[in-house]
């Protein structure tokens, strides 16, 4: 895969694994007698961000924010506008026409590995199948590699003979990760991979992912609603709300000094396991109302729930502007937003 970016590899500067520019994903709404297209939902509306090589970008948002759709669009699985996604410097369309298999470049891992594992296929066979598809035709080589992959995700070789039902949630997620690794991807889109797991297991999987990234220079897009997890795993964070970017930047900068009122309300809502802090926090929470997603008004999308909204916010949609070198925000009034005291 090195032929994709020979230049950056020599200069030593971190290249962009993923480049998203003005990504738009539209889904038609059908209705009436003839099921005609009567409306369009813009699930993702003009999103831009980068993921560098060997970097984790956390994509945060609540349900309906378009975060999963964005993740799928990166591997050509959502109907996106052409040219909006580039992997290692080349657009998805160019990669497809030149015969590159997007699957080998990037792999998707889901929240519920049980749904993505064939219940009738033993774990070993499932991984072996992925290797076969990847082009490893020799059976004994597949066997050896399969054991190696299981080892990489911290599973013992005995597990190869078991079926998905016989595994715990954490083990299934490890298998799903092993299977994704089988094709030696450069990019992994991790969609809520720890959300369904027990708290004591979540940490295991997060640490495993971080180790794998370090060892194999993988690029992660880590999609989640859990801000604590994002802060822990991500180098940089992207905050989405109703299909749009609200704030983007280095994790520490965004978490310590959030500039968007929406990021504020998210951070203030996260419960912390500390009785004194948590009681304090609960007193200062901002109320956010959820509204109809198809309803597209003018101006800022967060205006209905924003304590700082004024006439300008109702008319003009704010553009992304730079707060500091590694921190951008889409808010007219970001300079007025009081400093966030997280704890």
């Amino acid at each position: 895969m090195t032929m994709l970016n020979p230049v950056q590899a020599q200069t030593g500067e971190k290249a962009n694994a993923i480049e998203v520019r003005d990504l738009v994903v539209r889904f038609p709404v059908r209705g009436g007698l003839l099921r005609r297209e009567i409306d369009v939902v813009r699930a993702v509306d003009g999103v831009s961000f980068d993921v560098r090589e060997g970097e984790t970008v956390g994509l945060v948002g609540e349900s309906g924010s378009g975060k999963t759709t964005t993740g799928r669009a990166l591997l050509g699985l959502s109907p996106a506008n052409p040219g909006s996604v580039r992997l290692f410097g080349r657009s998805l369309e160019a990669l497809k026409t030149s015969g590159h298999d997007l699957q080998k470049l990037g792999q998707l891992v889901f929240q519920d590995p049980f749904a993505s594992l064939n219940p009738r296929l033993a774990i070993g066979a499932a991984i072996s199948e992925a290797l076969y598809v990847h082009g490893m035709k020799d059976k004994s080589a597949r066997q050896a590699r399969m054991i190696e992959l299981l080892d990489q995700v911290g599973l013992r070789p005995e597990i190869a003979a078991r079926y998905p039902v016989a595994l715990s949630g954490g083990q299934r997620q490890r298998v799903a990760i092993a299977r994704a690794l089988a094709v030696e991807p450069r990019i992994m889109i991790l969609d809520e991979v720890v959300s369904a797991l027990d708290v004591s297991i979540q940490g295991q999987i997060l640490n495993l992912l971080m180790d794998l990234q370090e060892a194999q220079n993988l690029s992660f897009l880590f999609i989640t609603h859990d801000l604590s997890v994002v802060r822990y795993v991500s180098h940089r964070v992207v905050v989405m709300y109703r299909g749009c970017l609200m704030e983007e930047g280095e994790t520490e900068s965004v978490f310590q000094n959030p500039k968007h009122p929406y990021t504020h309300s998210l951070l203030s809502a996260v419960p912390v396991p500390d009785p004194v802090l948590q009681r304090e926090k609960r007193k200062k929470q901002i109320q956010v109302e959820t509204q109809n997603l198809t309803l597209l008004s003018t101006g800022c999308r967060f205006q209905g729930s924003c304590p700082h909204a004024d006439d300008m916010c109702r008319v003009q949609e704010p553009e992304m502007r730079e707060v500091s070198e590694n921190h951008r925000v889409a808010c007219h009034h970001y300079a007025k937003i009081p400093d966030f005291v997280s704890s």
């Binding site: 997060l206 640490n207 802060r231 822990y232 978490f255 997280s342």
Partner: peptide
């Protein structure tokens, strides 16, 4: 104690590694 140590906190950055509870429930 292990449970409290195993969860990522909102003020915990990448530099501090989590210590998850080993094994399965």
């Amino acid at each position: 104690r292990a449970l409290l140590k195993s969860i990522p906190k909102i003020d915990q950055s990448r530099s501090e590694r989590l210590s998850p509870i080993p094994g399965l429930p």
